[in-house]
Amino acid sequence: MRSLVSLLAGSLFGIGLLLSGMTDTVKVQGWLDVFGDWDPTLAFVMGGAIIPMAIAWQVARVLRRPLAGDRFPPAPGAEVDRMIVIGSVLFGMGWGLAGLCPGPAVASLSYGGTGGLIFALAMVAGMWLAPRLRARLDRAVPAE
């Protein structure tokens, strides 16, 4: 049952990404290009996605448990640590350079050509490296 839910959610996510235009790197970079030919599409995608998701969070408060799970995620932590900022800045730089983020990178694998595949492989390598780099960062620059 959980796998069926995952398959359905992943499929909807991929279809939404394709239809929204978010697997087109030029549209994504166009949204980030505020000093060039700015493309507002991504704001509509974000806004559209937040509506059902906000409703779902409210429904989750009423339901006691997920339909095929034990519990809902805990409330978000209030603490904003430096990892959020450092990681997001690195991610944003890569996102701007290629116009791809993790969801669209997987969704467009079948039609994104060699370039999309190279990006996805480098991304997976980065994800594998990250826990190792993070441990090193903690040692080099202790948080407090």
């Binding site: 800045v89 190279i118 990006f119 991304m123 490296l129 990250a130």
Partner: peptide, 10 residues
């Protein structure tokens, strides 16, 4: 870009 996205998001 792929390395930055992979490392940064994690």
């Amino acid at each position: 870009a792929g390395l930055l996205v992979g490392i940064g998001t994690r």
